[in-house]
Design a protein around this nucleic acid. Sequence first.
RNA 1: GCGGGGAUUGCCGAGUGGUCAAAGGCGCUGGACUUAGGAUCCAGUUCUUAGUGAUUCGGGAGUUCAAAUCCCCCUCCCCGCACCA
Length: 989
Amino acid sequence: MDKNLCKIQGGFWMTFLDDIRKIEDKWQKKWKEDQVFVGKINDTKPKWFLTVPYPYASGPLHIGHCRTYNIGDIFARYKRQSGYNVFWPMAFHITGTPVQAVAYQIKIKNEKIWKIYEDYVSIYEKDPTKIKSIVQSFENQENVANFFANAIIKDFLGMGFSLDDTRQFTTGDKEYNKFIEWQYKILNEKNLITKGSYPILWCVNDKNAVGEDDIQEGDLLKVEVNDFVGIKFRLNSGTSLVAATLRPETIYGATNVWINPDADYNEIEISGEKWVVSKEATEKLKEQDHEIVVIRKIKGKEFVNQEVTVPITKEKIPIYPATFVDTDHATGVVYSVPAHAPYDYAALVDLQNDEETIGKYTLDKERLEKIKPISLISVKGYGDFPAVELCEMLGVKNQKDKQKLEKATQTIYKDEFYSGIMKDITGKFKGLKVEEAKDAVAKKLKEDNLATEVYETSKKALCRCGGQIIVAVLEDQYFLNYGDKKWKETAFKALNKMVITPEKYRQAFENTFNWLDKRPCVRKRGLGTEFPLTKGEGWIIESLSDSVIYMAFYTVIRTIRENNIKPEQLKPELFDYIFLDKGKIKEVSQFTDISEEYITEMKESFEYYYPNDLRHTAIAHISNHLSFAIFHHVAVFPEKYWLPAFSLNELLIREGQKMGKSKANVIPIAQIPEKYSVDLTRLHLASIATADTVVDWRETEVNFALQRLRKFWEYANRSVDVVKTEILNPAFPSRIFRSSIKTNLQKALTAIGDFNIRDYVLEGFYGNIRVIDEYHKIAEHLQREERETVLKEAIEQIIIVMAPVIPHISEELHERMQHEGYVSLKQFPNIEITEDDKQNALQAKFISNLLDDIEEIVKLVKTTPQKIHIYINADWKNELYRVAQEIFEDEAVKIGKIMGVAKENKVLNKYMKEIADEAKQMLRDPSIFRIEMLSAEKQKKAIEGYKEFISRTFVNAEILVHVAGDKDIYNPQKKAQKARPMRPALLLE
RNA sequence: GCGGGGAUUGCCGAGUGGUCAAAGGCGCUGGACUUAGGAUCCAGUUCUUAGUGAUUCGGGAGUUCAAAUCCCCCUCCCCGCACCA
């Protein structure tokens, strides 16, 4: 299916992949058998409790999810090998609408969904005859959840994740429901749940709330709720025409009311008033929490020519007919603001020129002629009548020119909203920005009972069942009041104490906290825990509340399951006792009929493991799950159990494209082992990019990781049978090699300690492979025993340090090298970088620069040198640099200053003439004032140590080392004088 | 619009004041090894040059002995803006 894939599957290295796949299976079985990763209380070690949010069990996970869990696993393994008793459990999220929606679509035989789910199932079920019946079984929502929960846990274990899989549960479990009920009891006790009305999208057919999934093409339409203001324009009879608008501030510019003459309207009685709205609007308003009685049905034309009073301005304006008025939109009545609304202007011009209509409705022509736009907003870049200007500019022909009118409306709305200022005619609102005036005018109108809320969908939409989608208002809706001042303050307090990594995401949390306000917390759709305050009414706790404090539930679920404790026994008093240390065990035990032993076990488990030391997930969850987790923790738990740390990662794309069902470019986790192999995938995922960047999974680059992994495998296997000997006096290259490996490993461990997995792999794995490559080259002439011993030492250490990323290969090599126990549990070596190591590193760098320089010259002169003379600087130059560096710490270096100081310096004052030249040279590149130097002696030693290798590199040229300033050195071209610290002069012959 | 994050050499991606012409990978070019190899190894991949110098890190202006990195302005891209998990 994928051309690039063949590269990996068909290569000569197939045996390698076959081998390591077997190894992966082998070690996963062993870990499982020995329960290596099952959490057990252990008082001899500090505990470390990791969670990665449980996945949603409505479909298979893919390599993008894998990135997140992979990072979690690397942390878990890192901590385990750093001496912690690590606890990383896993469960499944099934509440809310998705699982239910899948079941429903399968049931109604939605072909597209069937096809998708047959594909999904075929990832796991190899027997094609069984697939259809499994999908069929998804009619029952439990089967969906069970199937995918099982599949996902297998995926995870198949990736070698060091999970405790003995604590699985789903958010639909009865026991879990009890826990969520308890959570809500606490929130309610703390007055964090409030009531109010709330507009929602609603299907008139199902009589039920709908979400994006329920709407036909909902993912494309993105239907939203719009808040209209229905303004009452009173007729002389006392009845009001209710005209709906998104721009109430334009009431000052109203010139007339538009009504659709041929459409059906109703006169209705509502809250003791009489209104006229369209037939459709009548039905919508009924759902928007209004008691309505229809008094009579009327055609729109009956109102034409009548007069209404404009609220606030008290102007009398006429009602005119207009066909653009859509009775199925808001109230079906609109008022005209031709100065600022393109539709209105176009309709007005149309009407003024339409003799036929004027005649038909016997309109007062003189009055109609007199209607002129009334300007009420001044806006930069426009004159008094933006609508007129734009209509002319875009060439709007008439009110049927919808496309252009729509564009003009949008443009004006945006420009006026953000940069418009209310003019003098708007009374007390003059000078306000439109942005502010809009709400202020609406508020005033509502206060004076001149307007009402009217909700309408942003787009016309149909439910999948075929019913129309409207906006309904639910009365007495329950909200979580995240706006509660004290709650928010406490949440901020918790956030401020938390580690957020990468730190740049802290801002996103702060922003989320700031805009968080009341949030509806119950709904009628989907799976979940019944809302305890309204039992029997069919209200379900919305599913985000299922994923905020559940980490605590991991600590008790095993006791509940193992001892067959019934959901009914999980009373609030029990959780109060376990989690909040409230009440007495005796009473709780009697009350719940759970033995004191089990209660104690649960309490101890919770108190041992909590808090949840690190929660790792993708950044998409910042503005919901993660923020709510902080809020709910501070509401429910005492401060010592608040969340200490979150770490985050960006998403993963493939070959530059987002993965999506429709694109067929998804790599399911289940296919990773056979497609790539596990350790390869883990390695590549970890090293491909830093956590805060979007990862692009590209096949050609996976190939690189594969080749390095194989190389490491080969190097390591060559070392397996080596018997290490004691190296009494290691050669120069061996010393450098040891230091380099050590330094890289140390950098790697520091990096992962800082949550920087990429650098950890780059330094510890790829960096060290390069060091080994290099050693193979330079150590060719050394004794075999020395080489092999030094290499084996290094590889043994790399295996331990890199085990968190490539655990299977590491276990296998660890075993092949006859080491006892699991490398997964082996503590990292304690690495200390000594002064010697630093000197070694400096010497290595010195040599590498020297080689580059020689090569450079060889290339330029284009001949092979017989002799290479290397001139090391005289020691006084080191002294000069040192002095200059000292000066530089305080001030910019000037020649005069250097000369002055040199004159006073016993070593330097003999070389004043040379120093003048040298200083000039130094000032050209101030960065040399920062370099670390080796003494002439050490430079010389380094070169001597590599002499053999340098010579070999340049076709056995003779290497001659001279120190400038020594007597009688060979110096025909006066190169010796040019030698500088760390930069020997060269002469090639 | 508001809020957040970005813009690096052919591409992907490191790098936040000094050996940075800028890690690493991919791609490309040349060579080596090979029956062959998409494997491996070596060299090159801004221009210039006895190891030098010049110009580069979205655009512009500035601070500094020194700027991809700090300050200011501008342009463009991505993400979030709630009942969706």
